[in-house]
């Protein structure tokens, strides 16, 4: 469903000349699966997911969503994907209903299908009581719900949640995870990026650890636990980062990098 192959993104940078935000990252996610992209801030998660949502173009490698290449067929990719990010806010001067309807129309849904989908999404996310509330008056939790509604109104097979739980209180975050789990039940292919271990443990079928733009490890939690001989996921995560830092400094000393 989603396939990233040696995905690389480099930016020109004043300080270092070139900043490699994403370095040959590869992963695959199938339908009905939640893939957790885990990494500290600045690891490259947002860059990877922005490439999948076609707002950024990779400088190397390729990525396919629902069989469409993100560079050559961005239009088709955007139809197949629902993108929720901490950077994708909702409009202050639009009500929840108007906002979701607007995006439904942009996704090309005809009136009948749009009405049916809107009703379903609003019911599914329990949003009927906020349908006429303007964005500026909503709480963070309400806003997040509207964002999700906006992303799933066209019923896309792939959903991307980039740090979607950022800034949510514990109740709302829990509700969000339940919604995402519900979407998995519908057979959606979901990529969920976070830096919170608990969320990964609760939700993800497989995880990829991203650090300094590189994929350190990927697999099911059990596989990783076996591989690193560590049952505590948080400990395992820290070890991976430390190993990576050590390896990086060794490489630098040897003049490889």
């Amino acid at each position: 469903m989603v396939e990233a192959h040696h995905l690389t993104k480099a930016y020109p940078d004043l300080q270092t000349g070139q900043f490699i935000a994403l370095n040959q990252v590869s992963f695959q996610v199938g339908p009905g699966e939640i893939f957790g992209l885990l990494g500290p801030n600045g690891a490259g998660k947002t860059t990877a997911l922005r490439i999948l949502s076609t707002v950024l173009k990779p400088t190397g490698g390729y990525a396919r969503v629902n069989g469409f290449d993100v560079v050559t067929h961005p239009y088709e990719v955007r139809h197949s994907i629902g993108f929720v990010s901490s950077n994708t806010a909702i409009y202050d001067r639009m009500t929840a209903w108007e906002m979701v309807e607007y995006f439904g129309k942009l996704y090309g849904l005809d009136a009948e299908r749009l009405a049916e989908r809107m009703d379903r999404v609003f019911t599914q996310l329990q949003m009927h009581d906020i349908r006429d509330v303007a964005g500026a008056r909503m709480s963070t939790g309400m806003k997040q719900k509207v964002s999700i509604a906006r992303a799933i109104v066209h019923d896309p097979p792939v959903l991307v949640f980039d740090e979607a739980s950022l800034g949510l209180d514990i109740l709302v975050a829990r509700a969000l995870l339940e919604i995402i789990a519900g979407l998995r039940e519908e057979g959606k292919c979901i990529i969920f990026s976070t830096h919170i271990m608990r969320e990964v443990e609760r939700l993800c079928d497989r995880v990829g650890i991203l650090y300094h733009g590189r994929m350190l490890a990927a697999g099911t939690l059990q596989d990783l636990a076996l591989q690193y001989d560590e049952s505590d996921f948080e400990e395992m995560f820290f070890r991976m980062l430390q190993d990576s830092d050590r390896q990086l400094s060794t490489e630098r000393c040897q003049g490889i990098l």
Partner: peptide, 14 residues
């Protein structure tokens, strides 16, 4: 600034 531009950029509108 409000973060709504990225929402629009990731929509199907070119």
């Amino acid at each position: 600034e409000r973060g709504t531009l990225e929402t629009l950029l990731s929509s199907p509108a070119r």
